[in-house]
Design a binder for these strands. Sequence first.
DNA 1: TGCGTTTTTGACAATCATTATCGTTCCCAC
DNA 2: GTGGGAACGATAATGATTGTCAAAAACGCA
Lengths: 132, 132
Amino acid sequence: MSESGAAVRNTRQRSAVSALLGEMEGFHSAQDLHAMLRQRGERVGLTTVYRTLQALADAGEIDVMRPPGGEHLYRRCSEGHHHHLVCRACGRTVEVAGPAVESWADRVAEQHGYADVSHTLEIFGTCPDCAR
Amino acid sequence: MSESGAAVRNTRQRSAVSALLGEMEGFHSAQDLHAMLRQRGERVGLTTVYRTLQALADAGEIDVMRPPGGEHLYRRCSEGHHHHLVCRACGRTVEVAGPAVESWADRVAEQHGYADVSHTLEIFGTCPDCAR
DNA sequence: TGCGTTTTTGACAATCATTATCGTTCCCAC
DNA sequence: GTGGGAACGATAATGATTGTCAAAAACGCA
Ligand SMILES: [Zn+2]
Ligand SMILES: [Zn+2]
Ligand SMILES: [Zn+2]
Ligand SMILES: [Zn+2]
């Protein structure tokens, strides 16, 4: 027992990954982010990028998207529960909230006796710029 | 041009895969299905199972689910657009329809100028049997 | 500031579902 | 029945992600 300090340490690598995520506009893969860091001269290993992203995702600080047949994509998002409207071509992303959908999902699950309900929802489309 | 016959041939292997899917209750992976076929004495290659499932999915005859960190799962579903309420523990699946959600997603996308809209939606929970 | 302990790092190997190859098999229209 | 092309399937290749483990870096404390 005993809480015993979580002992999470501040490292140059973690700061670099976190900072980069703060500047990025849309979703990016671990390998993309790693390449960007190296281009800036930051010396960070790919393994560490993967680990850091996973930790941030577990902590709820970033969102993960798993597109069909591709790498996992990460993005720093606003707090609170929301979903994404993503451009298939360029990745441009809009955060959307749908209270009605949330309650609908919970209600449907409850009607069937399911507990501990969660859900995933993504909307895909072609953004105005890419449609042109 | 010229339509030229699609030239889709009926083979023992395709029939076997399709028939097996018809008997299965929930979602199953390509490797699971392959193992079941072999156990029945059906001689079908794993590659062919993958190819057949992909073809059926492309044709819209089966649904695909991609759980985090696992194999793709396939299931013969009813026709028409619908979503799934899935038990995290045993995989028990209920098909659900939500017209309100469909229109909400389309409306949101339209408001942001996105075209060719599609979406993915899955609800997860613990089914009554597994909750007990 | 120096130390000891514990976490973190990262180069490299391992994993493993899926896909590509490509010679063989066998549908099926004629 | 035959011929041409689709389908098969054993096997190798792919490629993202995870495991490994010795070396490096944090940080509480003296
Ligand atoms: Zn776009
Ligand atoms: Zn939601
Ligand atoms: Zn269950
Ligand atoms: Zn829908």
